[in-house]
Computed example of a mutant assay.
Amino acid sequence: MSAIDALFERTRVEDRAALVGYLPAGFPSKELSIRAIETMVEAGVDLVEVGLPYSDPVMDGPTIQAAADIALAGGTRVGDVLDVVKASAATGAPTVVMTYWNPVERYGVERFAADLAAAGGAGLITPDMIPDEAEEWLEASGEHGLSRIFLVAPSSTDERLAMTAEAASGFIYATAVMGVTGQRDQTSALAEPLVSRLRKVTDKPVGVGLGVSNGAQAREVAAFSDAVIVGSALVRCLLDHAGPDDALSALRDLVVDLRAGMER
């Protein structure tokens, strides 16, 4: 059983959804990104997504793009991302990397899988890689015991949902908002129907990402999903506060609010 499988087994027993938190490695600095992840886990994040900063983040909204630009300007490279993964895994929270496929391919698929596993990483989220084009990754991830987390969207056909669910492990990432990432004032009406469609073809856990930014929204999503995925709102805590102490305090407060909302 993988660390991710064990997490979802535990949250099922506890009758709650898992809280998944995303932050880019190297943002605002390598040291502070590690401190921020440690803060998130202490405050209640169950699973950490470490973002690999990329120069052409076509699926990311302005908040995550701004964070990635800062990380890249600071010299963040794949080796730094793996260092952040190692520190995150040391907290005890299952840790995955979220990345576009090009950096993995340039690094070397087998080498990336081996190095991610060696750093304590539990898997990889690949927003622009679909299962039917992922033969090399399926082989490498299987060899190194890494979960392969693929994305589905409201536009996915039933056939595509079934095929993606069959290839995925760890959990399935349901992107319930059409368009780029970012905070929203309200949750999407497309989220629950998408999860319902997935339930018809798989019993694997489903995590939903749709711009959740507060406890009330997290509660809505937790009512029909296995995991609530939060990214831009967490990144915004670090963007909006110049001092590290204030930034980490805001981050902690947001995670506490998210968890409280999910547990009401």
Rank of each mutant, 00 (worst) to 15 (best):
R148S: 14
I64C: 02
W137I: 13
D158R: 12
A218N: 05
S249D: 13
A165Q: 09
S2E: 09
T63Y: 00
A71K: 01
S249A: 15
M59W: 02
V195S: 02
S232E: 02
D56T: 08
T76L: 02
Q186N: 09
A222V: 05
P193D: 10
V230A: 05
E166G: 11
D83A: 15
L151C: 09
K200C: 03
E49M: 02
D257F: 01
A90L: 10
A134M: 07
E192M: 11
V96L: 13
L7R: 03
D60S: 11
V97K: 05
A18L: 10
E133K: 10
E166H: 13
S232Y: 04
A168N: 09
K200V: 14
V104F: 09
A6D: 14
V208R: 02
A73S: 09
A114G: 05
L138I: 12
A117S: 14
G209W: 00
I4W: 02
S188P: 08
S2R: 11
G79L: 06
Q65W: 00
T181K: 07
R35M: 09
S33G: 10
V48E: 01
Q186T: 14
G75Q: 03
T99E: 09
I70L: 10
S55D: 06
P193C: 10
V177F: 07
L161M: 12
L151R: 06
E31A: 15
A25V: 11
L239R: 04
M178A: 15
L19D: 03
V85R: 00
R219I: 01
R16Q: 13
S147D: 15
G92W: 12
A3M: 11
D128I: 09
V45T: 07
G209K: 01
L254R: 00
V177K: 07
L234F: 04
V195D: 03
R236L: 06
S232Q: 02
A71C: 03
R10W: 04
A3K: 12
A176S: 15
V20L: 14
E220D: 15
V195G: 04
L19E: 04
P24L: 11
S169V: 11
A176P: 03
D158S: 13
L82P: 01
M1V: 15
G92C: 12
S2W: 09
A153F: 08
P244S: 09
V177D: 06
N102S: 15
A67G: 07
A140I: 09
Q217C: 08
V109Q: 08
G182F: 03
V50Q: 01
S188H: 08
S188E: 09
C237Y: 00
F112T: 04
I70A: 12
L161K: 06
S29H: 06
A140W: 02
R12M: 05
V97F: 08
A6R: 15
G261N: 06
V177S: 09
G209Y: 00
R184G: 03
G207Q: 04
I70Y: 00
G21Q: 04
M178N: 14
L52F: 12
M178I: 14
A93E: 08
A191C: 10
G215S: 10
R160A: 12
A227T: 03
L258K: 01
V256P: 00
P103C: 13
V180E: 11
